[in-house]
Amino acid sequence: MTGPILALRGVSKSFPQGGLLDRLLGRDSRLVALDDVSLDVMRGDVVGVVGESGSGKSTLASLAVGLARPTLGDVLLDGQSMAELMRDHAGLWRRRVQMVFQDSSSALNPRKSVDRCLGETLALRGVPRAGRESEIAELLTLVGLGPEIGPRLPHELSGGQRQRIGLARALAMKPEVLIADEPVSALDVSLQAQVINLLSRLTRELGLTLLFISHDLALVRTLCSRIVVMRKGAIVEQGACLDVLDRPQHPYTQTLIAAVPKGLAGRRKTWPAPSAVAPETREDIHGAA
């Protein structure tokens, strides 16, 4: 029996709030972005993290990739504490846990071609120059792109292509855990479907562990085996994805599910009662036509 590949143990993260004056006057207040969060992610799990904006999803992601440190508690990678690992082997953590962002255009250097961007990442992993070209071609194939993309600059790519390059760059490090923070939120539905299918294939083929952050419950249902529902910095419900979505226990999860657009089936039979204010008619205002 092996332990979780990624674990959060009683993790809180807060940020200083208010201006300098407030702090000088001792009116020190802190915004609690994550409040005592514990989470075990097993190897090969595909975990969806959902919740409204501000619920702490991105904060959780930045802790998991080691871009931020918890205020309280600890993050463990394969049983090793972040506090220790970061002191001695920061590079190792960064290689084993990789991240894909929502807006790949700001995450990619606008002046570097795809080939160069991937090449530099491979160099970081210690791949000798001679081996890079073939590995770049493999990475591009892996994310469903052809070699003709190689010489292009980020602005010469479509949104969906840029998102795939962000993914290829993360995969170039051969990570064990991939954190994807709203990776398809900025894409059209047709491209969303392409990227979701790609992520699904990659987790299966590479045995990747994936933390998929999204506000789209239907996408999470398609891709993930587990789901974590966050609200105001806390996990309010978690479990097997289909169980939670079919039989949500927490009222907040029920609210999120009710808000998903459902087409004709979602038409409200009776619209909410008109408000108390008597409507003035157009004729009252502008006179009869």
Partner: peptide
């Protein structure tokens, strides 16, 4: 290509 919250789960239709 837009998945729903009910029905079987499988690969999405992509364009």
């Amino acid at each position: 290509c837009v998945p729903s919250l009910s029905g079987p789960v499988g690969p999405l239709t992509a364009i």
